[in-house]
Design a protein around this nucleic acid. Structure first.
Lengths: 225, 225
DNA sequence: CAAATATGATAGTAATACTATTATATTTGC
DNA sequence: GCAAATATAATAGTATTACTATCATATTTG
């Protein structure tokens, strides 16, 4: 058993996968498989085959594939907020706090042994490729009402408040923050697949480039009168 | 027959739908249906039912649903580039050119009778909800090589060049432009479905708010040293 | 008017995304 | 230590989707 688990919105799952062996195998293996296959080609049947259980058993944990995806992405953003909280305690200057946020958002993600059954690197790849699909559906409104997007909204709110500490009169703090977070995944995808759409170079400098771009966007927008 | 048609990449379709009656009905009705149902629930069978042809006939125009979506979204961005071209001829100042681009990107889309069989308003709603799904697939690289994303890349390039006219030393022109274009659809979606993620208000001021935000982002980033 | 092309009509298939049922393990509470 | 509750396995089945294939007929075109 892991030492730390996150409390995610209870509508994301039918049975909390963090609290059983099979549940943890579902999380762990679905991360690997979705990162490799993409959500479209990933099925509960294939997953059940890999973790040696039945399709019906997976359905006892997650209502459907989409909720599992939302669960995983929510876990990711919750984890990012957790990392940010750790990083900005004891920092007072809001500018430095915002820079820390951008650093965490843009940096390379590595396996964090605090969470045994989650491969954060693979999960980051899922977020890069699938995050937008999580809310771009006809059921957004219902799912939003259930609180399914709480993790992302909470992270946005936290960073928005830092922006407002820097400049309380800034008109678009939430729009800026959501754009930064979306850009942080989008630009990595572009760097790797559609390089003409970005100046961020895939490879060694990727995360540094991304940080500099986000910093340019963020402080440019905030400082502009 | 319409007076104007766009030349889109020939891999987007099997037979050019612009050049036949059935083809135009496919475009016209698929825009209405996808805007209403979303791509997920839209099927060629349902479309065939509406336009009174067989499923097989639709498959003679488009290899699959995904290519049809890419076709429609490509048409949209091609149209936007066409609107921008019209708007910036005779403007010399690059700052004013960029502002014109942002105005066109952010403004409300209305039916343009130049293109009889395309409802630009519905198409814009499709782009808002489905644009990201067009490239967030495992087949991006193959499709990119076929040139399927040419329209969007071309538009990006055009605006990027304007940004470089304003400030030739700016480090992230392409990244900025692709982020602005993505934000222009994303922020409308947020305004309508996840309002806590934006400061753009759904309703009367939506397009003005969006313009101001994009201007703030763009000129903030460019002007920052 | 023949040939080419476009569409219709019909059928079929593998895979997906589930739902349902019954049986057997395993855990837990007392 | 046992009964009750719970978890999982095993199996079967269904509607829908995303196609592919074939042959006939209508329409256009050179």
């Amino acid at each position: 058993m892991t030492t730390l688990t996150f409390k995610l919105n209870r509508h994301l799952y039918i049975r909390d996968p963090q609290h059983s062996d099979l549940g943890q195998r579902i999380i762990s293996e679905s991360i690997t498989m979705i990162a490799a296959l993409g959500v479209e080609k990933f099925t509960f049947k294939k997953l059940a085959g890999k973790i040696d259980c039945t399709e019906a058993s997976v359905y006892r944990y997650f209502e459907n594939k989409h909720r599992l995806l939302v669960y995983l992405v929510s876990w990711y953003w919750h984890w990012i907020e957790y990392c940010i909280d750790k990083a900005i305690t004891n920092i007072n200057e809001p500018e430095r706090k915002l820079k820390e946020c951008l650093r965490i958002i843009s940096e390379e993600k590595k396996y964090d042994p605090t969470f045994e059954f989650v491969n954060e690197e693979a999960l980051h790849r899922i977020v890069i490729a699938e995050f937008n699909k999580m809310y771009l559906t006809k059921s957004v409104d219902d799912e939003n009402e259930e609180g399914l997007f709480g993790s992302f909204k909470s992270l946005c709110k936290k960073i928005t408040e830092i922006v407002l500490e820097i400049k309380p009169t800034y008109t678009f703090p939430s729009a800026l923050v959501s754009s930064l977070l979306v850009a942080s995944t989008q630009q990595i995808f572009f760097a790797e697949h559609l390089p003409s759409l970005t100046n961020i170079k895939s490879g060694k400098s990727l995360h540094d480039d991304l940080y500099l771009f986000l910093e340019n966007l963020a402080f440019g927008a905030i400082q502009k009168n």
